[in-house]
Design a protein around this nucleic acid. Sequence first.
DNA 1: CCCTACGGATTGTTCAACAATCCCACAATC
DNA 2: GATTGTGGGATTGTTGAACAATCCGTAGGG
Lengths: 243, 243
Amino acid sequence: MAASELDPLLASLSAARLQRRAVMSTSAERAAHALREQVTEGTLRSGTRLPEVRLAEALGVSRNTLREALSQLVAERILVRVEHRGVLVATPDTAAVRDVYAARRIIEPAAVLHGPAVDAAHLDALDAAVREGTAASGRGDWTGVGSANQHFHRAVVALAGSERLVAQMELLLAEMRLFFHQMGDPEPFHAPYLDENAVIAGHLRAGRREAAATRLAAYLGTAEEQLVAGFGEIAERARTTPA
Amino acid sequence: MAASELDPLLASLSAARLQRRAVMSTSAERAAHALREQVTEGTLRSGTRLPEVRLAEALGVSRNTLREALSQLVAERILVRVEHRGVLVATPDTAAVRDVYAARRIIEPAAVLHGPAVDAAHLDALDAAVREGTAASGRGDWTGVGSANQHFHRAVVALAGSERLVAQMELLLAEMRLFFHQMGDPEPFHAPYLDENAVIAGHLRAGRREAAATRLAAYLGTAEEQLVAGFGEIAERARTTPA
DNA sequence: CCCTACGGATTGTTCAACAATCCCACAATC
DNA sequence: GATTGTGGGATTGTTGAACAATCCGTAGGG
């Protein structure tokens, strides 16, 4: 009947409505988004307390609404809540680095090896992230390189074909931003991996999954050790120069 | 109506609230815990709406506190929030099953193969879960078998040595409970896997990681197909008997 | 130097209210 | 008869103010 003519239109309309909803969202989500950005950009540094009243005023929302936003970020491990003391920006330690990398070493190589969704779209996403990284590197924009790296690893996990796995990976990657912000000079933690990403993307495009997986696994191992060493230096400095 | 269906539940919730007060810290967490339990136990079925005022009264907390709890459960994918319509118990579909299993097929075999934490404590946890399952099966307690199964797979992922990965796995397993509650007869979805769990635990205790991993991967494949078939039947029934 | 009491600040939680939005039933229209 | 307005009621999103519980720094007292 005429309904079949109408169906695609109806579908596009309802899709547009959902999208508008997702963009506008509720004020709690907007507040959470703003805070998350401040933390991942490094404007809010690890350990800073977030007093509810002042923060609520600054964000233009009520305290109750703010608390919903804070709870969400606590669930994402970006913030930490201490009872009757408030929420603070999480301060990762060596154990956090080891834990995150233990998870990544399970997920990422397995996605590369066994992911069922190695198709054109996902390969293009990988290449796009690689290009984004080299472009940012050319500008000396190391924060940009960090974002590009994040996009690369999200694209890697997307090969598994699971929205949920990607969402969980994004939590790990957001926590990684906290790691980097604790390092002094970001360049040595990002620069060496630009070429690695390109090589891995090339392997995958050529169908050499095992090569890509082993390269990625090695990559994750050295990156972890480098970060742990960085945290060791921080601890050393804190020990020798007490407040 | 849905109201009369909800009432006895509300009563039981308010009864349990005194019990938990001493154990858990904040009342938002207590409320979230109580609700999560009701959903995973199957008392609250998929699709039921959770009106804020009545639920807040039943749990003995204010509406604002309840909203914090609901937000947390929404983040866990146990509940779904529709703007201006409220939160409902999530109703998974075939896509959700496929997505969850895509994630599990990445994480679990990799944890078995490459997990660095295959020590006595973790092997004991596996065996304990196996015993818990056979015991529950002996009582004909299929909900108990489901819990034991959940514990088994949590123990499998714990081999990876990452708290965060275990936490993420627990979200997937909680969502699995929703799948099972939509199936009519739980037995065929739990019984076949008791022996499999025992075999896998045995392989791991003997150091045969590859054998354990391949067995686990096959296991996950058949379980997924079985669940998808179950959901197909539900859809079929809904199509042939319209409301 | 250690302990303790005290006061201010912050959180945990509640309550009451209002606008925005959705749902449903009913009337009006073609 | 099916489709389209059109209230009215219920529910959510959000706010503001309030109070008790708890923490933290500080000032005395031993």
